[in-house]
Amino acid sequence: MSSVTIKDVARLAGVSPSTVSRVISNHPKISPATKKKVREAMEALGYHPNIMAQSLVSKNTQTLGLVLPHSAEKIFVNPFFSEVLRGMLAYANIKQYDILMSSANNPKEEIEAVTRMVLGRRIDGIILMAPRQKDPIVEKLLEYQFPFVLLGRSMEHDHVLSVNNDNIKAAYDITNHLIKQGHKRIGFVSGPPDLVVSIDRLEGYKKALLEAGLPVHPDWIIGEDVLQGNAFHALTMIMNSPEPPTAFVVTDDVVAFGLIRELYAAGFHVPQDVSIVSFNNIVLSELSNPPITTVDIGIYHLGYLTVQHLIRKLSGEEIEKPQMIVPHRLIIRESSMKLQ
């Protein structure tokens, strides 16, 4: 039995072979009705396009590159990444794109991975997660003039495609929640200091304190590594000071789990002795003890819209607003309470 060809599909659908080719490449100028008719014909005949041959002609691979911010071992410990990836894959599947993931242990390896993907013509566009201040990968992609989208934002380039939360406002809102509960001594546990998301959330936290006339204590702004190794003593020193914080804003739910554990180990109870609020609203935040007050940032939608934004660009669509903002909302649970 001979294999099914594009001409066979075109004959059944009542269109030209070139139209079938455009439908396969998801050309934006083909009407939805025509796309539906051609895809039904493809399904009826059992036709599957030769993606490799198609890419040689069209120079499209139907593949997106995803640059992960750390080594894979660290990434998939945090449910944030599996949920955002679920959103990415959902939209990529709708548009019949594959996602090629690359992880590295340091910025140098990240640059090398991006260079291999771009110069090797293995992908049509790149998704960059957790961009840093003065990010070398952003600069390299701009140099290559290669399509990419940020899950996050660039501090230096406001014209690049990005999908993000308003992290300054989100941190401002969750800090204000504590202030309204009567807390005046509020600490902050940050993520990696060079990440734009960490910088934005720290700014929102400070803004809320200053507007309320409350002091910003530099000693109460600590990195997430405070929960690792010998750095635990920094937390105990803060909590054993004459006037310790009565609450902490934590930049990530998983880090909040560790902070609660270490506070319990040091003899402090949450929220009776110290309130904890966090970000992301991963599934486990509701199941922790106590359930964590957190900012729902719409993780799945961040991933879904990031891929949608990039594919729209690759399809030749005019993007009027390159920076897309996903709304956030506060989820109030038992880890924070009104100061007695």
Score class of each variant (00 low, 15 high):
P131W: 00
L202V: 03
I186N: 13
L210W: 03
D124R: 08
E139C: 04
I137N: 08
R185W: 11
R121A: 13
P218E: 14
P192Y: 00
D194H: 10
L214I: 08
Y144F: 15
V197F: 03
V114E: 03
V160E: 00
M117I: 01
E156I: 02
M155Q: 09
I126T: 07
I127W: 01
A208L: 06
M155L: 15
K206R: 15
Y172T: 05
A212D: 13
G204M: 09
E112T: 09
G223R: 07
K206H: 10
R153A: 00
V114G: 09
G187S: 02
I127M: 12
E203Y: 11
P192R: 04
L141T: 06
R121F: 03
D166V: 01
V163L: 03
E143G: 12
R122L: 14
T175W: 04
Y205S: 08
A212R: 06
P131S: 05
Y205M: 10
G152S: 05
D225I: 03
R185Q: 12
I221E: 14
I179L: 12
G223K: 09
N176I: 04
Q145A: 13
R185P: 07
D194N: 12
D135Y: 00
V196D: 00
R185C: 13
I179W: 14
F148M: 01
E156Y: 03
D194W: 04
R116S: 15
R122T: 06
M155D: 07
A170M: 05
S198N: 07
R153C: 02
M155P: 03
V114F: 01
K169E: 11
D135E: 01
E156P: 04
A113M: 10
V160M: 03
L151M: 14
L151H: 05
Q133I: 09
K206A: 05
K140N: 06
H157T: 04
T115H: 15
K140M: 14
G204P: 12
L214Y: 10
P193I: 05
F146N: 06
G152W: 00
E203S: 15
M117Y: 02
L161Q: 05
H217A: 10
H177Y: 15
Y172I: 01
G213E: 10
